[in-house]
Design a protein around this nucleic acid. Sequence first.
DNA 1: GTCTATATAATGATAGAC
DNA 2: GTCTATCATTATATAGAC
Lengths: 188, 188
Amino acid sequence: MAKTLNVRDALLEQLVVVFRERGYEGATLVQLAAATGLGKASLYHHFPGGKAEMAAVLLRKSVAELQQRAFAHLNKMKRSPVERLDAFIDGFSDYVAQGASHCLVAVIAQGSAADVHGDLINNQFADWRSSLIRVYEELGEKRKRARRSADQLLDELYGALLTAKLLGDPNHFMRCVKRLKRALGALG
Amino acid sequence: MAKTLNVRDALLEQLVVVFRERGYEGATLVQLAAATGLGKASLYHHFPGGKAEMAAVLLRKSVAELQQRAFAHLNKMKRSPVERLDAFIDGFSDYVAQGASHCLVAVIAQGSAADVHGDLINNQFADWRSSLIRVYEELGEKRKRARRSADQLLDELYGALLTAKLLGDPNHFMRCVKRLKRALGALG
DNA sequence: GTCTATATAATGATAGAC
DNA sequence: GTCTATCATTATATAGAC
């Protein structure tokens, strides 16, 4: 395993923190540069396209990470549907650091960068939603009901991230996760 | 009833559209002025504090509207708990224009203006959460379970607003509303 | 109360030395 | 590859005429 990530990836890890916390418009080059320890001009050496390029790269990186850490579990046919849902929830929870950080994809979707990346995001989430629906169908639910279950799960996870902020309660997200896992237990 | 709103309120109604669509950082004075049909300097006549004042006024106005249109129904003791929850969901749905627009309170909570208004928002939502919990307790749920029910309802409503954007599906929010009302029907 | 014009500051971005 | 210095643009905000 790589003892040190390549420079670009190391930079991206520092940059994503700023975008997640401040949003696309809220993240300034001064803040982004400060987060990396570099000067603004040095950042442009690594990302000639500036803020737009950083966001575009990070969006794709985050989509891939969300896929690997969470949604990929839904397609592991060796496990039972309930186990897959459980692994998905845990993976999502890890992806957002137990509610301590946001989902960059959602952040981008809510800013002006959505004009450029909206289709990518919409298509990806439509795909992910289909995976979720399929699992609920395997659980014996009819298509219509499976759709409702899938939508409800997604809504609760993303909603809990937001309401945690509205309530000012960092633990709110994990309470939602426990609630969801408890409900899963009743199913399987 | 006022045939015409006073000028300030009319302006605020036009301004809130911009903040909801572009976020606090994303809304520029040029856009805000354009939405009112006034020049930038004229906006400063009505709101000497500029963007910060507009947002502060609109936040309070939105909190009041959300209270009146949605959460107030939870305390109407003449109605049954289920009827109150049903009226709350409808009121919230109206407040966000059936999912066509966002909740300004959530928008502010996610931008840098949250530094100033975070406490107001947190306290208000803690209060609203308590109202929700009380209704579920009246339905016979124990405190712990009532808390879970209240959190789940809030998470789903706010989550559906967000996932509607992630999915690019304007109807997603109303599907959530129907799901919630159907579940209510089973309760009452 | 609204406008044009302008000031001030911040932001995104580039040039060029080292 | 990083820096200082600078530029061009946009943003917030104000002055003052009408």
